[in-house]
């Protein structure tokens, strides 16, 4: 019963939140620029419109192109089913599932890039190259961060490892440090400023958007849905890390945890919008430094934690 309710909640969040996450980011950016901005659920109507259109493919493409966007969505959906949004619960969890999470998203990236290369466009090849570079550099941060949490919590399953089993002070430091590192991963993986500017108008400076130049109609809609879902899932993970409550407690606790996670996802979306409004995109050469910063934060947390465990006298 509890499982069914929580699963229903999880799936409901995954269906609804991506629409509003995109809406909130755009609204914050518009507000900051002095505009009113689109409706919060605008992306839902955009999606419906795209789904009704007849796509036009490039002449060069093979079967990889139409299939790839659906595979990207399938990987995002699968990944979303093993990640916790509320600490202590994911619809499907097993030991080491966070490794599977990183790798299934990798499969999505692979097909995203193959779809881009399939059109034979130099611009899309360029976007794929940048995407591959940045995500490869972000990967160690993600897995080292989650690995540190796994060590601290003594659990190897994604849903449980976000609940560190350490003293209060250590707990706060650990959660904030890892959340910071994961935030860097979020900005890179979700192609937001400072890693990538989703609203830029010049193909030469795009990363994610340039890979979908030749996508149209349902393909474009599917890819956009997949990106929004992936962003929401990553925000859900950070929310779960920061969430002070967990489902393992009473019913009230579970409701509190769920509410806290939703509020945190909203805040994270707003913060992404805020970051986009306040800073410009980094130079491409500076991005490795951003991932390095994330890595250093995790290493710092890890070493402090190791000392705290009394391994270094």
């Amino acid at each position: 019963m509890k499982y069914a309710l929580l699963t229903a909640f999880h799936i409901a969040v995954l269906l609804i939140a991506p629409i509003y996450v995109v809406g909130v980011i755009n609204r914050v950016k518009a507000y900051w620029a002095g505009r009113r901005g689109p409706r919060l659920n605008q992306s839902f109507f955009d999606m419906l419109r795209l789904m009704k259109k007849t796509p036009v493919y490039s002449e060069v493409t093979s079967w990889i192109f139409p299939v790839s966007s659906t595979i990207v969505l399938a990987t995002a959906v699968t990944a979303s089913l093993i990640t916790p949004i509320v600490p202590g619960f994911a619809p499907f969890g097993f030991p080491g599932d966070f490794v599977a999470f990183a790798y299934i998203l990798g499969l999505g990236k692979l097909f995203m890039m193959l779809g881009a290369l399939d059109t034979g466009s130099p611009f899309e090849g360029m976007g794929a190259s940048r995407e591959a570079t940045y995500s490869a550099l972000a990967e160690p941060v993600l897995l080292l961060g989650l690995g540190t949490l796994a060590w601290a919590s003594g659990a190897t399953s994604f849903q449980d490892l976000v609940i560190p089993d350490v003293s209060l002070g250590m707990n706060i430091g650990l959660r904030i440090g890892i959340a910071l590192a994961l935030y860097v991963v979020l900005l890179i993986e979700a192609a937001r400023i400072p890693a990538d500017d989703p609203t830029t108008h010049l193909e030469l400076t795009m990363v994610h958007e340039v890979m979908i130049l030749d996508h149209s109609g349902p393909e474009l809609g599917i890819v956009q849905q997949a990106s929004a879902l992936k962003m929401t899932v990553l925000m859900g993970v950070i929310a779960a890390v920061l969430n002070p409550f967990s489902v393992s407690a009473s019913v009230v606790g579970a409701c509190l945890a769920a509410a806290a996670s939703i509020i945190l996802i909203g805040l994270l979306a707003a913060s992404v919008g805020l970051v986009e409004s306040l800073i410009a995109r980094f130079r491409f050469q500076a991005l490795p430094l951003l991932t390095l910063a994330g890595f250093v934060v995790v290493m710092f947390v890890l070493i402090i934690f190791n000392v705290g465990q009394g391994h270094i006298q």
Binding site: M51, K53, P55, V56, E59, T119, S121, D214
Partner: peptide, 14 residues
């Protein structure tokens, strides 16, 4: 369920 491609065009070359 979704509309399928019935038209192709050259790759967008900016």
């Amino acid at each position: 369920f979704l509309p399928r491609c019935n038209r192709t065009h050259v790759t967008w070359g900016c």
